[in-house]
Design a binder for these strands. Structure first.
Lengths: 216, 216
DNA sequence: TTCTTCATGTAATTAGTTACATGATTGA
DNA sequence: TCAATCATGTAACTAATTACATGAAGAA
């Protein structure tokens, strides 16, 4: 490789630049709006990465002063498009989850039943905040006002993943709330939900059986 | 605060030390087995963090040489237990997702239909690998052979979340495969699945309506 | 006795976050 | 005209990963 292995973050930004040129601020907004849901990065990264792309000839920077301040607008180059295309064709990594609240559930013995319920309730709030933030996007497109409608078929693919994810969280919150509410106040006396456990084991077995069937 | 704000990773390790003392290697295995599914960290972190805990008086290190090499076994202190307990009672952050393959889906216009199908198929393999890796744990507990059975009620809570997550991924893979297969070879001619889009908008609205009902 | 896997750790590097600073624009 | 918010960026710091090195134990 002549190119020293860009990170996924670099390619994510390069991908946005392939849609159109953006100033850094616009890139940041775009990350908030969409990409950030499954590739979250802090804003300051968005000032660094494009510089790297420019250094490699994958993008170019245009200075576009606003008043006394400079603003940098980045655009993709043909070389950048080629690099992006070859990245897109390689299958990517699977989902990675980080879930602090669940770590606290995992160590629930150090808190009370009501602490645990509060932790779970916090996840419900998270879900609601998220519903709030993401509500306008599908509506824009349904009203034929969403940007870059030619990309819509695959934007729906990604949106649907996030939707399934939220459904999973919601289902879990509902079940976990009920389950913990049924426990005694001293949670060390709780009975394990062995039915749930058996269901997990079964589903797991089903996935593996399906694989054996698929692959011979 | 006298304690300079530990990270979630620190508390995760502290939580494990509260179960029993472990050598670093055992900690690493334990991360692979369970915590790593929702708080993934590289192995070398597991050598660093305990040192920090020791410096703060939250854990103590015992040297336990094996042949000519040293091995360090860490144990929690009473102060460590107090610190852990106060962390557990605060509700934690919601789930954060990173999903490289989905970034590639998002930029699917730079690849072909079959590239896209391959990306989705990669996610199915991920799912199967995961089923493989996690299969024995529920079975151990169902056979009453799992370690620390007194923690089982909340271990099932966390396991169930991961199960719901996998179900979501599986549902998405199935739907996405079907959807993309129905597209023309030139994906720029694909029709957006507006029904799916409308369903997402509806679910979103339902979550928000439920919140209004709850809090109003 | 040698190969492989288990086990133990450090060092160098990269990625990512937090904190800060300040100009431009808008609307009360 | 002043406060709030939008916009632009850097610097210092912390977290995390990758690469490396090597001893111990068990199997062939």
């Amino acid at each position: 490789m002549s190119i020293p292995e860009l990170s996924t973050t670099s390619y994510a930004i390069l991908g946005l630049l392939a849609v159109r040129p953006w100033s850094t601020y616009e890139l940041a907004r775009q990350m908030d709006r969409a990409l950030g849901w499954f590739w979250p990065r802090t804003r300051s990264k968005l000032y660094e990465e494009p510089k790297k792309l420019v250094a490699l000839g994958l993008a170019k920077a245009n200075d576009d002063p606003v008043g006394r301040r400079r603003r940098t607008v980045y655009a993709i180059t043909p070389k950048g498009r080629r690099s992006l295309a070859s990245w897109v064709r390689e299958p990517g990594d699977g989902p990675v989850l980080e879930f602090e609240a669940l770590v606290k559930v995992f160590f629930a013995e150090h808190g009370t039943k009501s602490d645990l319920l509060a932790t779970i309730a916090g996840v419900r709030s998270w879900l609601e905040d998220r519903a709030q933030q993401s509500q306008q996007i599908p509506e824009e497109y349904l009203n034929e006002r969403g940007p870059y409608p030619e990309r819509l078929p695959w934007l729906i693919l990604t949106g649907r993943f996030l939707d399934e994810f939220d459904v999973a969280v919601e289902r879990w919150v509902n079940w976990a709330t009920e389950t913990v509410e049924s426990w005694p106040d001293d949670i060390t006396g709780a009975d394990p939900d062995l039915e749930a456990l058996a269901a997990m084991a079964d589903r797991n077995a089903a996935v593996l059986a399906a694989r054996r069937e698929r692959s011979g």
